[in-house]
Design a protein around this nucleic acid. Structure first.
Lengths: 139, 139
DNA sequence: GTTGGACCCTGTGGCCGCTACAGGGTCAAG
DNA sequence: CTTGACCCTGTAGCGGCCACAGGGTCCAAC
């Protein structure tokens, strides 16, 4: 049954909105399995490659790391296993995202403070410059 | 008046909580001016280097880019100029941070949705896996 | 049958902001 | 005079690609 015409790397790229170089990169780092080659040494992809690359791209859109994508793909292969491991990967990622949001919110607060102090005078009296100067970092 | 004993790169590093390699890196990319050298070719820093590196590190703590740090340092030199340019750099950075927070909040929402659908069954019926699979990305 | 252009191949270098070596030189204390 | 802490340059690596250069392949039109 796998007699459909194989996909070239360019076909796969446009089907998944991925750059050709990215697909080759995924192969290099073990996210996408190396496909068969034609007589002219072109990569020849099948439907399963398309499926896995789509999966991976969706995961990357959600900013899972490539390591996590590899893990998720492997987990998704064991159709009969519990999906708790999948859940765990997703939760870990969510926690990271939440931590990052908290960090950035703190940063936003500091920047707003800084900017709020600007009196639009000269640099010599600039609060922003002064706030960044030595011995004022913690203040 | 610049007759104080100069600082070695290690002194500067511990004074600013910066790795030695990072200081050399800042020199390479033009964030910190190359200092004088001793007879043994050691870098010999003065008070002005300490000041500028402290400034730069504070700015980096606030996640200004190195490009922005370079700009801020240059702006901070023109003591008589208006500090509007400084203000502009800070506002630009704040906007970037706010955009990133918004992006991550949207991401958090998607991830929570995804995880909330997990019924802890097998991978075959896993909602997370299914959500990532082809033709379900936008749903 | 050949020519043109669209595609493909590998390999390398660049982006950001460092960090971590390797393989040496320098210097002060004991 | 040796030890060990420091310093030097240069290079490679992280993540996740992107963009070449310098070639090969393929198909269709002429």
């Amino acid at each position: 049954m796998p007699l459909e015409t194989p996909l070239s790397i360019g076909d796969l790229a446009s089907a998944t909105d991925t750059k050709v170089e990215t697909i080759r990169w995924y192969e290099r780092v073990g996210v996408l399995a190396a496909p068969a080659r034609t007589s002219g040494n072109y990569r020849a992809y099948g439907a399963e490659h398309l499926e896995r690359l789509s999966f991976g791209r969706h995961a990357r859109d959600l900013e899972f790391s490539l390591d996590q994508v590899r893990d998720l793909l492997q987990l998704a292969d064991d159709r009969n296993q519990s999906c708790d491991a999948v859940d765990r990967v997703a939760r870990e990622h969510l926690e990271q995202v939440e931590r990052k949001i908290a960090d950035l919110e703190a940063l936003r607060h500091e920047l707003r403070d800084l900017i709020g102090q600007c009196r639009h005078g000269t640099v010599a009296e600039c609060r922003i410059v002064r706030a960044l100067a030595p011995d004022r970092g913690a203040a």
